[in-house]
């Protein structure tokens, strides 16, 4: 017993150092895995508040771009609204038939207050949280494309797992055909992502557009992602396909949080099916 006490006293600095180092490394490993929500995340009152204050200055630099982007999106949406049937004579007898509407996704707005794109496991922080109706595993996108998936939430802030994160795997498809693939990132260029699991029958060309596949409950179908910038064929299979994003991931401002209204129902159904 005396020897153990002596040992501890002799090496107390080293043991203390070892203990703290193990704690730090376990936080790191936890942060690298997708399913454990990280202990140290910026979705808290203090760091969220400071990032929000800093962002008040930073957003001025991009106001012009963000305005342009929102104007373009408005014009696009107005054009869709303007599409009316040509032989619609009975405009005066306009009846709103609510049974014709079917809303599956609802959109909320938020601002990115902290944006990472320099690391291998990148996260964004947005200025909306639980009290604005945000929950984990909701999609985040803007008019130019997808951005990420919400992970940790506090009452006023949320961290978003960026698509520039090794753990992010998003189901996408070619807009010209119905071939699906998985969007991943190799950690190198923040505007170039990689597409995998695409069958050779897809017969892709450089410049083909990718959109979200709608196979998951997170993103609706048809959100733009990017274009194919480069690909290689090896052993009659696609080895690497590079995707150039429409978004500039280093300058993200206002975003939409997409929640699937039927998510709970779909997940319950899937769970009960696998349990049987």
């Amino acid at each position: 017993m005396q020897q153990i006490v002596n040992f501890i006293l002799k090496y107390k600095y080293f043991l203390f150092f070892l203990l703290l180092e193990i704690i730090a490394i376990s936080f790191t490993i936890q942060n690298h895995s997708y399913h454990n929500s990280a202990f140290s995340n910026s979705a808290n009152f203090l760091s969220g508040g400071i990032h929000k204050r800093v962002n008040r200055f930073k957003e001025y630099a991009h106001l012009r771009e963000h305005n342009d982007q929102l104007l373009k999106e408005n014009a696009q949406l107005k054009n869709i609204l303007g599409l009316e049937l040509k032989n619609n004579d009975s405009a005066s007898a306009h009846v709103i038939d609510t049974t014709k509407y079917f809303q599956k996704y609802s959109y909320r707005t938020a601002k990115v207050i902290e944006n990472q794109y320099q690391k291998k496991f990148n996260y964004l922080t947005i200025d909306k949280g639980e009290r604005h109706g945000i929950a984990p595993e909701m999609g985040v996108a803007n008019s130019k494309g997808i951005i990420g998936i919400t992970t940790n939430i506090s009452s006023g802030y949320t961290t978003v797992l960026s698509i520039l994160n090794e753990n992010a795997k998003i189901n996408v498809k070619l807009s010209k055909s119905f071939h699906f693939g998985t969007l991943e990132w190799n950690g190198e260029d923040y505007n170039i992502l990689q597409l995998s699991d695409l069958p050779i029958q897809a017969n892709i060309q450089i410049g083909d557009t990718l959109i979200t596949g709608g196979k998951s409950v997170i993103f609706p179908e048809g959100i733009p992602v990017g274009t194919i910038s480069n690909f290689k064929v090896e052993n009659n299979d696609y080895s690497t396909i590079d995707i150039k994003l429409f978004n500039d991931m280093s300058a993200i401002g206002p975003v939409y949080i997409i929640s699937n209204i039927d998510k709970k129902e779909i997940e319950q159904l899937q769970e009960s099916t696998t349990n049987e």
Binding site: L20, F27, I50, K119, F121
Partner: peptide, 13 residues
């Protein structure tokens, strides 16, 4: 620093 930059425990280690 880790809490602010969502990096787990890398800076702490």
């Amino acid at each position: 620093i880790d809490i602010f930059s969502n990096s787990g425990g890398t800076n702490a280690a």
